[in-house]
Design a protein around this nucleic acid. Structure first.
Lengths: 199, 199
DNA sequence: TTCATAACTTACCATATGGTAAGTCGTCAA
DNA sequence: TTGACGACTTACCATATGGTAAGTTATGAA
């Protein structure tokens, strides 16, 4: 039950932080939504910063598990890379909260003495780069070139994932629905195109 | 002098809002940096929300002027599109504050009843789509396909622009410098690749 | 000279913030 | 039965927040 409450707090905190950012959310706001007092949160987590830290940590942990599920032997490396990117697209859509929070971290990184922003990305980005360098066309490409491509693709995904409200606002729900249908296919072609073009 | 102060306030506000977000910045913080009292800001802008609104408005205005400078007659349409994208890359690097603030707006759009997020993007995105639909390969592509591609490219740019601190943190300054050199070339190829691949 | 107005400042104020201290209450092992 | 402990709550507190009200001071037109 205790672990349950903790997890619930982390869930609500994640949702709220992702919507309003660290400064936009008060402990009281999180507590209210759970019919608790803010002191309950302080009891469990010690401080707002620590609570926020655990939210990030949990996301980081989630990310670490994706790596494993994608590597299936006997599949062509370019397809592995492509599949990985599509999996990331899927993930960015399935967990928009998480995506938003990570983008917020990217923005806030410069301010907070947050080693946190670095943590999960390091291994994750390196993994992507490695999977790219396996490809015949890319094995002699510079690290920088690989990272640039990988990051461009990640950007395409994550930027889109945080734009849903704005895009719906601009183009309306039907048009957004059409875009949302078209997006994954287009993204797949973008990835494939970039791969075959070579460095 | 008065207009000067106003502009200065808007400058500092833009810088601070872009670094910490709306809730992360207090009127006092902005005022302090200018050796003014927060009441001076309230005198000029009425409220924090209005000050923030004017910051956005000013950015929006800046954006509207790019459109004009790019259309040069006698240039092949695919080069126009490509040049436009490269100009946007350049802009995202020249004014990282602006880029960060816009991404923050994307994130916060859902919360604030902000029509502001919509304003500048509408014409801007439509302009990009139109410039894409001019191309022979793309003239019969669906609006959704065009928007998807355009948005993917924008995402690649803007996501990268807000990631400088994180990327430096992960890979170190020299590696980041190499990445920064490689990025525009790679981005140009991404654009070109996507264009020639067709819809 | 006068007087209005703009550009501020000092003085407040209600509210919200993160956090501390000291309880209350139920559970569960000894 | 007791007593420790975990999961909370109520009571506070110093500080910061956005905002109002009422000055003060400089400038420039009548």
């Amino acid at each position: 039950m205790a672990q349950d409450t903790r997890a619930n707090i982390l869930d609500t905190a994640e949702a709220l932080f992702s919507e309003r950012g660290f400064y936009g959310v008060s402990l009281a706001a999180i507590a209210d939504r759970m019919r608790l007092t803010k002191q309950a949160l302080l009891h469990h987590f010690g401080s707002k910063e620590k609570l926020y830290g655990e939210v990030l940590e949990r996301i980081s942990h989630r990310f670490r598990t994706i790596e494993d599920e994608i590597d299936t032997p006997g599949v062509a490396p370019d397809e592995v890379f492509c599949a990985y990117m599509m999996r990331l697209y899927q993930l960015s859509q399935e967990r928009p909260d998480q995506t938003r929070l990570l983008v917020r971290e990217l923005l806030d990184n410069r301010r907070r003495a947050n080693t946190a922003g670095t943590w999960y990305l390091t291994a994750f980005l390196q993994g992507l780069i490695d999977r790219l360098k396996v490809l015949p066309d890319w094995q002699y490409a510079s690290e920088a070139d690989c990272l640039a491509l990988v990051y461009q693709l990640l950007g395409a995904l994550n930027y889109y994932a945080i734009s849903q409200p704005t895009l719906t606002g601009i183009f309306g729900s039907p048009a957004y629905a059409a875009l949302d249908t078209a997006f994954p296919g287009r993204f797949e072609r973008l990835v494939a195109g970039a791969l075959t073009a070579g460095p």
